[in-house]
């Protein structure tokens, strides 16, 4: 299997309204693709449906992860199979220290795969090195996950989780929004460090700037619930210049 992700003619309804209207997307192993598109065009919806969030009705189509249809799987089962979603709006978990959450997530995945639980010293070592790469200080790891975190801190915490969980398919929903220029570089370096031949990435963004740091193999334009154009990284530059209007009527 050389494709990590195959989305075929995906139609999705939310409360009787069709949001995704026939998405087709194939990401080969090791490739990084970007999706750009207007507000409300359905990008987050696509990421949620991939991850298995409730409330979305798939009326047609399928999603294959590494060749396997995942639409019937629970969100956690998809996660265990290596799908990771960096949320546009990460959720607060009061009272649960970031460190505790990381350990719980890592061990839950290991357990589901029939592996031994991580030993605390090994866990600590891994967390420390990942946190260092993302310039996250240890005080933040003791705080409740995402509670009172600044926008940028939340996004870094997402990438930290990704770095530790080592998924094979990473989806980033506007990870760059809310990041200052320095943070954008740090986060991009973190993401780039994870790029390899067996890991694919899907980056949802509004800004071409991120794609200067994380250079995509393919850029897709998303409009009105589907992909309307695909091209190389220069497509992002073109979009930046001309906007989405030219794609509005190409339905």
């Amino acid at each position: 299997m050389s494709n990590m992700l195959e989305i075929k003619d995906l139609h999705v309804k939310v409360e009787d309204k069709e949001i995704l209207k026939g998405v087709n997307l194939t990401i080969p192993k090791g490739e990084t693709h970007a999706i750009m598109g207007r507000n409300g065009s359905g990008k987050s919806t696509l990421s949620y449906v991939m991850a298995g969030k409730e409330g979305y009705e798939v009326t047609k189509g399928e999603i294959l992860l590494d060749g396997e249809n995942i639409l019937e799987l629970e969100p956690n089962e998809r996660a265990v199979k290596g799908l990771f979603l960096a949320f546009q709006y990460p959720i607060e978990i009061p009272g649960v220290a970031t460190m505790t959450f990381l350990k719980a997530a890592m061990n839950a995945q290991r357990k589901a795969r029939g592996e031994e639980e991580l030993l605390t010293p090994d866990f600590m070592r891994e967390v420390k090195s990942a946190a260092k790469m993302l310039e996250i200080d240890s005080a933040m790891l003791k705080r409740a996950l995402n509670v009172g975190f600044s926008g940028g801190e939340k996004k870094r915490a997402e990438i930290l989780q990704m770095a530790l969980l080592k998924p094979k398919m990473c989806v980033f929903d506007e990870t760059d929004s809310g990041l200052d220029i320095d943070a954008l570089k740090i986060v991009s370096q973190g993401v780039n460090a994870l790029r390899d031949a067996n890991r694919s990435m899907l980056i949802i963004t509004h800004y071409q700037r991120l794609l200067n740091y994380i250079v995509p193999d393919v850029v897709h334009v998303f409009s009105n619930g589907r992909i309307v154009k695909s091209g190389d990284k220069s497509l992002a530059l073109e979009l930046e210049e001309h906007g989405y209007a030219q794609y509005d009527e190409s339905i």
Partner: peptide, 28 residues
């Protein structure tokens, strides 16, 4: 919230593990 449960599940915890973790946070 469903959002909290989904978030935890997205990280690999099953629904029961997610609830236990959130509750443990609540009683910290």
């Amino acid at each position: 919230s469903d959002e909290q449960l989904f978030y935890c599940q997205q990280r690999g915890l099953n629904a029961e593990e997610a609830v236990a973790l959130i509750v443990n946070g609540f009683v910290r």
